[in-house]
Nucleic acid binder design. Sequence first.
DNA 1: TGAAATAGTTCACCTCTAGAATTATTCTGT
DNA 2: ACAGAATAATTCTAGAGGTGAACTATTTCA
Lengths: 178, 178
Amino acid sequence: MYSEDMDLATPGRPRRTAFLLSQLGAAASSRFADRTREIGLTPSDAGVIRLLGRAPGLSQRSLADRLGAVPSRVVSLIDSLQERGLVERVRSSTDRRNYELHLTDAGKRVLRELRGIAEQHEAELLAPLTDEQITQLGELLAQLANGHGLDRDLHRDVVRQAGRDAGPDGGPDRARKA
Amino acid sequence: MYSEDMDLATPGRPRRTAFLLSQLGAAASSRFADRTREIGLTPSDAGVIRLLGRAPGLSQRSLADRLGAVPSRVVSLIDSLQERGLVERVRSSTDRRNYELHLTDAGKRVLRELRGIAEQHEAELLAPLTDEQITQLGELLAQLANGHGLDRDLHRDVVRQAGRDAGPDGGPDRARKA
DNA sequence: TGAAATAGTTCACCTCTAGAATTATTCTGT
DNA sequence: ACAGAATAATTCTAGAGGTGAACTATTTCA
């Protein structure tokens, strides 16, 4: 679907900000997915390529952590990207349990394409706003994200190290909850 | 998943606004889903109840149009809500092909709960911002939504009337983007 | 009246993903 | 050094959620 989400607040008052945010977020994701599909990638594929671009040699396990995905999910993701020659698995020489994941040259080319796509996407999405408004929006969203602990994708290793259980802050909520 | 989406722009510059929007939108949707789950509803259920609250007597077909869903999907949605005694199907006396859908008293109670949930949700989501910032954000998001034609949920009937076909890009998924 | 359109339903199927069980390897304490 | 616990990756089963095609009942229209 797309916009199953709500707007339960009574109409009229500007109480539908959360709803708008969900809507726009879904629309943005969907548009982005359209664009990546044109070069044969799912958004998940793109996420993997992006991460491997900035952190080459990552193991599947930490990739899973950073994506907020489960390890078995990563297996099929990498399988698929490897079949298409975009990613390669290299057995770690120091710990032969895990792989070091790398982008191939083709993978790096795709990464560059992806950056272009992201730029276009950003431009298209923000087209209805003035430069000033864009800055404003960026700040507001960043503040929101911080306020809700939606930080960079790093900290997951930490989470993992630390509270094997005990997640009082309900943190990034992932996993949990089921 | 959750945040499969991108942040492909080079780090540093505030070029990740689209990414932030996707992230926050997904987070908002997910939080809302958590809350509705607590009263035994999926976000889709909540959407149906909301629409039937403001437009009682709707047919399944136009409900489908407004939700952006396919008719068969609506069948199971209504089946489920009817089994739980929240919605009832009444054969239209003027056109016995379709039903008039109504909330039962229990359904109306759930709708009220849902409004409370939406308010809490809104408050929690926007907690990191000042009142002034909330107003700003609301305006920016509204402007974005307008700019991208994410209007109210009505206009789908129009879409339906108009371009019955005309899909040159062969776009396999999305029911024609609205 | 007969053909086409429309509302709803059924059903078979598809994709996505989670979670448990399995194998290989490494680490730990004694 | 060795038994047992922990960790990385993989395989496989299963379930949610959703789509599209075929079917029935009713209405519209020429």
